[in-house]
Simulated scan of single mutants.
Amino acid sequence: MPLPEPVANIAERIVSYYETQATVPFFIYQYEPQDEYAVRRELNDLRMWLEADPRNIECDTVSLADVFWKTLEEGGQLDEIINLERAGAYEEAQLAVRQVLSARPTFADRVVDRVQARQTDRSAIFLYRAGALYPAHRTSTLLDELKARIDSPVTLLYPGSISGDYGLRFMGKTEPTYGYRALIIPRGES
């Protein structure tokens, strides 16, 4: 089964990185939020393709939602945050979430630890379920922190929309963010 063109583009660039050892590539695979499950199927196809001979690239998927919830649970404030949300104190709840995510070990520290524990000489990292971070944590911040600390290709599955040439609107709801230091690859029309 051939990979869809945008996914094949990512696959070729990952393989090319291991052939040339150029700068570690970071990708943002942008798609509309309602396409989440189709994108996960595409990710599975991409993993099988990369892991097959002759490519033999180990693929590691990281659910940002799982890391997010684990961080909140270990931060000891999950019940308080839930109670704030139930009471309609959304701003206070978001502030509490941001404080937990920025405390040591930070959210990015936890993602890096998770990746480094399973990283091999030929790894490709896929970050998915980024929608769970909305509105508490920006993916641009996460990618900036990972870029200096991970030496394998990283692809962020990004539920959102493109604004202009290089702006991304997380979940199609935020103001556009510019300055991502990753190659944006749009999925295209669903």
Score class of each variant (00 low, 15 high):
residue 7 V to C: 13
residue 7 V to N: 05
residue 8 A to Q: 15
residue 11 A to G: 09
residue 13 R to K: 12
residue 14 I to R: 00
residue 14 I to P: 00
residue 18 Y to Q: 05
residue 23 T to F: 14
residue 31 Y to W: 10
residue 31 Y to P: 03
residue 32 E to I: 15
residue 33 P to K: 02
residue 34 Q to K: 13
residue 35 D to M: 15
residue 38 A to Y: 10
residue 42 E to P: 07
residue 45 D to A: 12
residue 47 R to V: 08
residue 49 W to I: 06
residue 57 I to V: 04
residue 59 C to V: 10
residue 60 D to G: 09
residue 63 S to H: 07
residue 67 V to A: 06
residue 68 F to K: 01
residue 78 L to T: 06
residue 79 D to R: 10
residue 82 I to E: 14
residue 84 L to W: 10
residue 86 R to D: 15
residue 86 R to S: 14
residue 87 A to Q: 12
residue 88 G to F: 11
residue 91 E to A: 06
residue 97 V to I: 15
residue 100 V to Y: 00
residue 100 V to T: 12
residue 103 A to M: 09
residue 103 A to S: 12
residue 106 T to G: 00
residue 108 A to C: 05
residue 114 R to C: 12
residue 114 R to S: 11
residue 116 Q to R: 15
residue 123 S to E: 01
residue 127 L to A: 04
residue 131 G to H: 06
residue 132 A to L: 06
residue 134 Y to W: 00
residue 138 R to T: 08
residue 139 T to Q: 08
residue 145 E to I: 02
residue 146 L to K: 09
residue 153 P to T: 02
residue 157 L to A: 15
residue 157 L to N: 05
residue 158 Y to F: 15
residue 165 D to I: 11
residue 168 L to E: 05
residue 172 G to P: 06
residue 172 G to Q: 05
residue 174 T to E: 00
residue 177 T to Q: 10
residue 180 Y to C: 04
